[in-house]
């Protein structure tokens, strides 16, 4: 079911009995002469955390952007097993895409400027998600913004501060609150802790871990930091030059890497 182009790569163990939430098959994308993705396939099961590792330029962020429907591939199929969705999501029009992204998919970017309105309040940033989904009651907006910020362990006395006045770790928490405000089926994390110092990074990862445990959110986390992937991911996908070179259970990949590049990656970790 999962197309893997390297003989060395392992088939993901088929332990899950539920059908996958996310299925991507044969996604290719070129930017001019640059091949960003070449026949990439991925599967994510409900409640699972998929880690994507790879060097800079390996196509992992492009893949995440595809999952968030921000870009359309040259070829490929993308499905989410959600009640009222069917067919290839890449065929959706702009309007349907936006509604889907706003209500069913949450994303946390590495750069908070991409995900937040810096000059609006933090609670307003969270409320914006609810507003796009059609919520029009001020009391409900306020309450749910407070709830989401609380769940991402943001200090509530600062909920009306503008993100631009906040520290990097706080900004990531606001992004996280915004992403989980509508209880999305899928949470995408693009290098969520890169650029934070180690102690703040640990706190943010703690929050993510706890959210994952409490709400059983399905997550896809992209990082070049193997430590982050080791902490978070159940299953790992290793990418290089736009291809998936290896995938398997996290322990499997870290203890017994098969592909030459994965071996280098695991051993290069300080």
């Amino acid at each position: 079911m999962i197309a893997i182009d390297t003989a060395l790569a392992l088939q993901a163990p088929q332990l899950m009995t539920t059908p996958p939430l996310l299925t991507m098959a044969g996604v290719s994308r070129r930017y001019g002469d640059v091949v960003a993705l070449q026949d990439v396939s991925a599967t994510v099961y409900p409640g699972e955390v998929l880690g994507i590792v790879g060097e800079s330029g390996s196509g992992k962020s492009t893949l995440l952007r595809m999952m968030n429907l921000e870009d359309t591939p040259d070829a490929g199929d993308y499905r989410l097993a959600l009640p009222d969705l069917s067919g290839n999501l890449f065929d959706l029009d702009r309007f349907a895409r936006r509604m889907l992204c706003a209500t069913r998919i949450g994303i946390v970017y590495q750069n908070p400027h991409l995900g937040l309105l810096m000059k609006h309040t933090s609670s307003g940033n969270v409320a914006e998600r609810l507003l796009i989904a059609g919520e029009r009651s001020f009391a409900t907006l306020r309450g749910r913004a407070r709830e989401a910020l609380g769940a991402s362990e943001f200090p509530l006395e600062r909920m009306d501060a503008r993100p631009i006045e906040l520290s990097g770790g706080m900004q990531q928490r606001v992004q996280l609150a915004k992403a989980i405000a509508l209880e999305p089926a899928l949470l995408l994390l693009d290098e969520p802790t890169t650029g934070l110092d180690v102690s703040v990074q640990a706190l943010v990862l703690d929050t993510l871990k706890r959210l994952q445990r409490d709400r059983a959110i399905t997550m896809v986390i992209v990082s070049h930091d193997l430590g982050v992937i080791r902490t978070m991911a159940d299953r790992v996908m290793v990418m290089r030059r736009g291809r998936v070179v290896e995938q398997g259970l996290a322990d499997q990949i870290f203890q017994d890497p098969q592909h030459e590049y994965t071996q280098q990656l695991v051993h290069a970790k300080l």
Binding site: H120, T121, L131, R136, R142
Partner: peptide
């Protein structure tokens, strides 16, 4: 797209402030 959700954000912030 009649994507006007953000306009309520202006009102939201005025009420908050």
């Amino acid at each position: 797209d009649a994507d006007y959700g953000r306009l309520w954000l202006i009102l939201y912030e005025q009420i908050v402030r």
